[in-house]
Simulated scan of single mutants.
Amino acid sequence: MEVGMVVVAGELYVRAYRGVGSRWYRAARKHGHGTIRVGTVRHDVLLTTDGLERRAGLDAAFRTKYGSVAEALVASPEARAATIRIDPAAAPAP
C-alpha cells in the first residue's frame, strides 16, 4: 500500500507512507486544488495540507480500515506529515 484514504467526521483524508517527498503530496501542497475522477464523474476538490497530521481520530480510522498494514501510515512521522484533507470545491457561479 502506498496511499491510504479514510473518512473521519465526514471529512476525507489521504496519506502516503512515502511522506512529503511523494509527487502527489508536493503537487497538493503547491496547487491546493485538484480533480478526483470516479468512473466518468469528475469532482473539483480543495487539498489542505497544513496541520493535519495530529487530527483526532485519524490514526484510529486508518488502523480500523487497514489493520496491521496501517502501521506504515500511522507510525511513520513521514507519512503523518503527508496528510491531505480533500474537500469539495465550491461550485462555479452560473
Rank of each mutant, 00 (worst) to 15 (best):
A81N: 11
A72Y: 15
V6S: 00
R55H: 06
W24K: 13
A75I: 08
R80A: 10
R26Q: 15
V45N: 03
V3D: 02
V8D: 00
R23N: 06
P94V: 07
V41I: 14
I86S: 12
I84Y: 05
M5P: 00
R29C: 09
A90P: 13
A75C: 14
S68V: 11
T83L: 09
A16Y: 01
T83N: 07
L58C: 02
F62L: 11
Y13N: 01
R42F: 07
D87T: 15
I36D: 06
Y25T: 04
L12D: 01
T35G: 00
L46A: 12
G10C: 03
R80S: 11
D87Q: 15
A27T: 10
H33P: 01
T83M: 08
A28N: 07
M5H: 01
Y17H: 12
L46Q: 11
S22A: 13
L58H: 02
A56S: 02
S22M: 02
L46E: 15
R54K: 10
V41G: 11
G34K: 08
V41C: 12
L73H: 10
L52A: 04
E71R: 15
G10I: 05
P77K: 10
V7P: 01
G4E: 05
G67V: 10
M1I: 00
P77Q: 14
V6H: 02
V45E: 03
P88A: 15
R29M: 09
V8N: 00
G4I: 03
L46K: 12
A90V: 13
A28C: 13
A93F: 15
L73D: 08
T83H: 06
T83V: 10
S68D: 14
L47T: 06
T49A: 03
T64P: 02
L52M: 07
A89F: 05
G32P: 11
M1E: 00
Y66Q: 06
R23H: 11
A61R: 05
H31W: 13
V69E: 14
A28Y: 07
D44W: 07
E53K: 05
A16H: 03
A81R: 12
P92A: 15
W24C: 06
A82W: 02
T64H: 12
H31F: 14
H33R: 12
V20Y: 00
H33N: 04
G32N: 12
G4Y: 04
L46I: 13
V7S: 03
R85V: 14
A90I: 08
R15V: 06
M5N: 04
K65V: 05
R80Q: 13
T83R: 03
L12W: 09
Y25W: 14
R15Q: 04
V6Q: 00
P92W: 14
